[in-house]
Design a protein around this nucleic acid. Structure first.
Lengths: 213, 213
DNA sequence: TAGATTGTTAATCGATTAACAATC
DNA sequence: TAGATTGTTAATCGATTAACAATC
């Protein structure tokens, strides 16, 4: 709702701004300038000001930015409805770790249910969250209307799951699989975390590093 | 060593090319055109050809690209020395999951040791890999010369670890923490996997999705 | 007022896309 | 030869950076 014009690179910088501003806040700083933020972010004062002006501009000419105001404005941009609701599919090693992560380190995200097709897990809990049968996910989502599905399942399972994804009504997928979830529904917002790709890109850079910087 | 000119966006596309080309290979396809690859990648034929030409060009005019040749060329670009050697710091929930991931799903990466400062874990094994005391990491690295450190430790631990990082002699860090490891050593290659940032960016996009695409 | 720093417009830079000659 | 498709140069597009007027 509202504010249409931030590009993806700007959106991806928002959490980093938020992180650094949180630190400044914790340190008791009340004001910060675009040049100070640029220094921390490894960018330029221009970029900082351009970025913030995508959202209307939070500063005062001649003064700088209020740390508290920046904090609450960016928090509100990232979580306009205070929090989003998520369910997790896949209670394996990765799923369990991600559940743990979301519960402990992702303030604005609620995790309400976990789904798995391993019958031995169904009915049990993981970090106090109930594990349901994967077959029941559409029904569950239609009733509880989560915003987000977190996919920590093997690629083959993702492929089977994808056709019913639209029926769940979620707006996005946090995708840890190598399956492309936007195939059936282009309007779905998919955030990919491709660990293997990340590691391979790192291998390339390590292996071809000419040290010339 | 060699090939200096690929930009970061190009490097980040390499693993995706590799992934899709692996699939084509598995399907028994022997030839592929830049337009077919563009279709799969969600890009343009021009971009595909530009990308490959960063590395000398793997195609034949009038014919297209050999799937087998592309596969082996890109594999060699990503892992010029067949594999890279890594050690893991942090044997918690995330560390255990990542160890499991590297051992089972990251073909070109060897994991030879795990480090943790929890004395109860030291001496035990995780997925058959020996867990050492974190204090011994510099000594271990000087002897075994791994290419890469995988950091799955809390931010405070990362902060304490960072000053000795240079002494390990590794070329890069696969960084799951929110600590900026390049502070002490600018020449270090750091690949960040910031789960919280990724989730926040997704929350932004879900929450401000105007469905206008 | 003078100094500082933003908001915003203009210039630059780099990445993507288009065009086309080379060639299989 | 004609058709297809690459390699490569040129044009476009978008993001970053610089400049400067507005203003605290």
């Amino acid at each position: 709702m509202s504010t249409p014009k931030a590009s993806l690179p700007v959106i991806r910088r928002l959490p980093r701004y938020f992180r650094y501003i949180s630190e400044l806040k914790a340190m008791g700083k009340t004001r910060v300038s675009s040049s100070q933020l640029a220094e921390i972010m490894g960018s330029t004062p221009s970029q900082v000001r351009q970025d913030f002006n995508c959202f209307g501009g939070f500063g005062q000419q001649g003064i700088g930015y209020s740390v508290d105001l920046l904090y609450s404005e960016i928090e509100h941009l990232l979580f306009p409805n205070d929090h989003i609701n998520a369910v997790l599919v896949g209670a394996g090693s990765l799923g369990a770790t991600i559940a743990n992560f979301v519960l402990n380190e992702a303030d604005g995200v609620n995790l309400s249910a976990i789904f798995d097709n391993n019958i031995n897990l169904v009915g049990k809990t993981l970090h106090n969250i109930r594990i349901f049968n994967s077959d029941d996910i559409v029904e569950y989502c239609q009733e509880h209307k989560p915003d987000l599905i977190i996919a920590c399942i093997p690629k083959a399972a993702a492929e089977k799951f994808a056709p019913v994804l639209s029926a769940t009504g979620v707006k996005g997928v946090w995708n840890f699989t190598h399956y492309d979830f936007s195939i059936y529904d282009k309007s779905l917002i998919v955030e990919n975390v491709h660990l293997r790709d990340s590691l391979m890109a790192l291998s390339y850079r390590i292996s071809h590093n000419t040290d010339d910087e």
